[in-house]
Design a protein around this nucleic acid. Structure first.
Lengths: 191, 191
DNA sequence: CAGAGACTGTACCGATCGGTACAGAGAGTC
DNA sequence: GACTCTCTGTACCGATCGGTACAGTCTCTG
């Protein structure tokens, strides 16, 4: 009930999600507190619950949806629509390297997959990876590989990205991530 | 101050660590609460703080030390001492598959590496992976590979294990982990 | 200018957080 | 039996958790 100390900033929902996303990335679902999210966005709980009436779970769900959409547009769709498989895979690799800032940024979907919160978001996590897997395998099929090889190579690529992020962070060496991306691209199109 | 309701169970420190380890694995460092640890061990805070006066941080540090020791004995030492590189790598692969229960169990060191708690345990995390990396690269050198190739293949193997754990959990498909272990072993000794 | 509705900070809620204090219970020693 | 030391449960601490309530402030519409 302090007198007239309320400013008006008018935040856009779309501007909020990337900021919240980084908090979840850094601290995981359980570690991301409303206080941290408030600090990152510059908003109080009032505003936060105005935009996300269902609280933290809704924020995480919408962040995951936005990430899913970004990958759908920038990566999955490119893989599906390209008729130059080698170029599509090169584009994907470059895009992934840029997105994860050469290993300095962590994959939120992977972080959630490892934690206890996987059970809450299991369908979104599974969907993200299996759609990526399908799109990439489809591209490899178009490059002339059998369904089995395509699928196996695609899974290998996905797991390489996730593992490279873990190891690069563990060793504090982004070079590990860069090398893994080079190796991954070579393995995808080998032979 | 309820009257005489205190039982005497006499827990062994050594029996405690594996139980605590599983809590950290499932919930991460921030998500592992004293209540969960108490539930898992069947001990109250009194006993917990008797064994670990510095609380949660000490528990995590000792769990990490125990994991480190287990890998040192069962994996790193085997890699260093074997004079049959192919056999040593096959043993490592089998041992890793067993330890991670074919992808059903998560790597605590990897989980910590991804989270904010990495900063607290950075030296232990880095040590674990770089000692593994050194031991494996040394084995590959003995198999006749150049230092550069050995190092690159070794890093690739470590990242494959971590990524396979993430992807297997995300897709809820342990087959992914098994296939990754097969591929990893083949790539380590290829050509 | 009046009213509606979106957006804001803040006080507050019960629950739980990590951690402390402490007394009771058991086993060993004399 | 009295003393000591280890191990135990539990009451309690201040801080913070996710979430609610609400009054104030702005913009937009008439």
């Amino acid at each position: 009930m302090a007198k007239g100390t309320i400013a008006k900033t008018v935040s856009e929902r779309a501007d909020l999600l990337p900021l919240i996303s980084e908090v979840f990335r850094r601290h995981g679902y359980e570690g991301a507190t409303l206080a941290l999210i408030g600090k990152a966005t510059g908003l109080g709980k009032g505003s936060l619950y105005h935009f996300f009436p269902d609280g933290k779970a809704q924020m995480a769900a919408e962040v995951l949806a936005e990430i899913d959409h970004w990958f759908e547009v920038n990566i999955f769709a490119v893989l599906r629509n390209s008729n130059d498989p080698a170029q599509a895979i090169a584009d994907m690799t470059a895009c992934v390297d840029r997105y994860f800032r050469s290993g300095n940024r962590v994959c939120l979907v992977g972080v959630i997959a490892l934690g206890a919160s996987r059970d809450i978001f299991s369908s979104q996590v599974q969907d993200y990876f299996s759609r990526w897997n399908d799109a990439l395998a489809q591209t490899l099929r178009r490059a002339g590989f059998s369904a089995g090889v395509a699928r196996r190579r695609s899974e290998d690529a996905l797991l390489t990205i996730q593992g490279a992020l873990v190891l690069a962070r563990a060793l504090d060496d982004t070079r590990v991530f860069g090398q893994a991306m080079v190796d991954m691209q070579a393995r995808l199109l080998a032979k």
